[in-house]
Simulated assay, not measured.
Amino acid sequence: MRTALVIGTGLIGTSAALALAGRGVQVHLMDHDPAQARTAAALGAGTDEAPEGAVDLVIVAVPPAYVANTLAEAIRGGLARGYLDVASVKGGPRRELEALGCDLTGYLGTHPMAGRERSGPLAATADLFEGRPWVLTPTRDTDTEVLNLALELVALCRAVPVVMDADAHDRAVALVSHTPQLLSSMVAARLRDADETAVRLCGQGIRDVTRIAASDPRMWIDILSANPGPVADVLAAVAGDLDETVRALRALQSAEEDKRDEGAAGIEDVLRRGNAGRSRVPGKHGAAPAAYETVTVLIGDQPGELARIFADAGREGVNIEDVRIEHATGQQAGLIQLMVEPTMAPGLTAALRERGWSIRQ
C-alpha cells in the first residue's frame, strides 16, 4: 500500500491516518467539515489535498448512518483499488450497499475494536489500535486483493486481525460494547441528582463502572441506531436478571427465614454467574486472565512519583502486569495497585518498603 484516502477525520479515521502516515503511506484526508480535515493534516495524519488519481485504499470512517452512501459515492467514482469502512456495525451497511446496486467485490467491512471517551481528530493517536482486535467481515465475493489490503492496513496499525461474519459481529458488539455503554450511562445517571455527601464517597468501583459514561451521546446515538435489535435483545436478558435480583433483595427483607434463604440463593446465583462470565474476559495478550497478586502502595500526587515506583519495581526485576490508581478524596495522595505474578509479590513488597514506600495491606 502506497496511497490511501481517509474519508472522515474523527478519532478512528485520524488515528488510522496517523498510523499509516507514520509508516510511509501517502495519506489524503477528506471530511464534510474541511476544518476538521485541516486539523488532522496539521497533526501529521496526511494532506487535506485531494489525490490526483485513484489511491490504493479508501477508508471510510464516518458515522454508521452515512457509511453506505459515502462508500457508494466512492465506489462509483472509482477512487481506489479497494474500499473498506471502520463502522462499529457491519450487517446494515453491507445490505444498504447491496440495495444501492454497488459492485461489492472491491469492498470489505471492518471494525477496529478500539476507542476512547473523547472524539475528534485531537483525541487521535497513532498507537490507538496497537494490540487491539480488528474485525474483518469478508464474503465469498470479496476480492483477494482487497482482503490483502485490509490485512496490510491492520498490520501497519499493529492491530490483530479477526475474521467474522457481519451479523455475528453485530451480535457480539451488542454484548461486549454497546450494552456496556448503556449500562454504564444508566448507573452514572443515578449520580446526577444524588446527594453531594453520597457522591463524595465514590471509590474505584463506581469509577470503573461509569468510566465510559463520559462518551459523546451523539456518537452513541449513531452507533445504537445502526444496531438496535441485538442491543435490545441483550438488554432484555439483563432486565430479566434485574427483576430476579430485585425479588431476591426484597426476599432478604422478609421476616421469614425460608424467604431470606431464597433471596440469598438468588443473589449468590447472579454473583457466581458473574464470576464465571468475568473469568472468560481475555487477559494480557489475549490469554485467559491470570491470578495476579496485588501490592497496594500509598503514592503522593507529585510529578515523578509514578516513574519512581515503576523504576523501583524494575530494579527488583519485577514486571508490572497491570496497574490501577485510586485517588484519595480531598487529599494529595492515592493508592496505586500493582498487579504482579504471585511469586514476585513478597520480594516487591519488601523492596518497596526498604525504599520508603508505604505499603497497604
Rank of each mutant, 00 (worst) to 15 (best):
A61T: 05
V89E: 15
A37L: 04
W134A: 08
P63M: 09
A155E: 15
A65Q: 12
L71A: 11
V55G: 08
L149G: 07
L122R: 10
V60D: 05
T105M: 11
G92V: 10
T47Y: 05
V55F: 08
E52P: 02
V55D: 06
D56H: 09
G77H: 11
D141S: 15
G92D: 07
D143I: 04
V173L: 10
P161H: 06
K90D: 08
A114I: 03
E152D: 15
A123D: 04
G109K: 02
M113F: 04
L57W: 09
A87F: 10
P34K: 05
E98A: 15
A123Y: 01
S88I: 11
E98Y: 07
L149I: 01
P121A: 15
A174V: 08
A87T: 10
S119K: 06
V135L: 01
L156E: 06
A114G: 03
G109P: 04
A99T: 02
D103L: 12
V160D: 07
G120F: 04
M113D: 06
T39K: 07
T105P: 14
A80C: 12
R38V: 06
E96A: 15
R76M: 06
L175D: 11
G46P: 12
P161E: 05
V154S: 00
R132Y: 01
P93F: 14
L100A: 10
I75R: 11
I59Y: 14
E98W: 02
P34G: 06
Y107M: 05
E145S: 15
I75D: 08
L153C: 12
D167S: 15
P138L: 04
M113P: 00
A40Q: 05
G46E: 09
G77Q: 11
A65I: 06
L149T: 00
L128C: 13
S88E: 06
H32N: 02
A150C: 00
T47H: 06
G131A: 06
R118M: 10
A168N: 12
V154E: 00
G78V: 09
C102A: 15
E152W: 12
V89S: 15
L147Y: 03
E49V: 07
G53R: 01
V160E: 13
L108Y: 03
A155G: 13
A123F: 03
L79C: 11
G77L: 12
A114M: 02
H32A: 01
L57G: 10
V154D: 02
G46M: 12
F129E: 04
M113Y: 00
A37C: 10
V67D: 00
W134Q: 09
T47L: 00
V163M: 05
L43P: 05
A74T: 01
A35C: 02
G77R: 12
D103T: 08
L104E: 13
V62R: 02
T39H: 10
S88R: 03
C157P: 10
E73K: 00
D56C: 10
E49F: 09
L104D: 08
L108H: 04
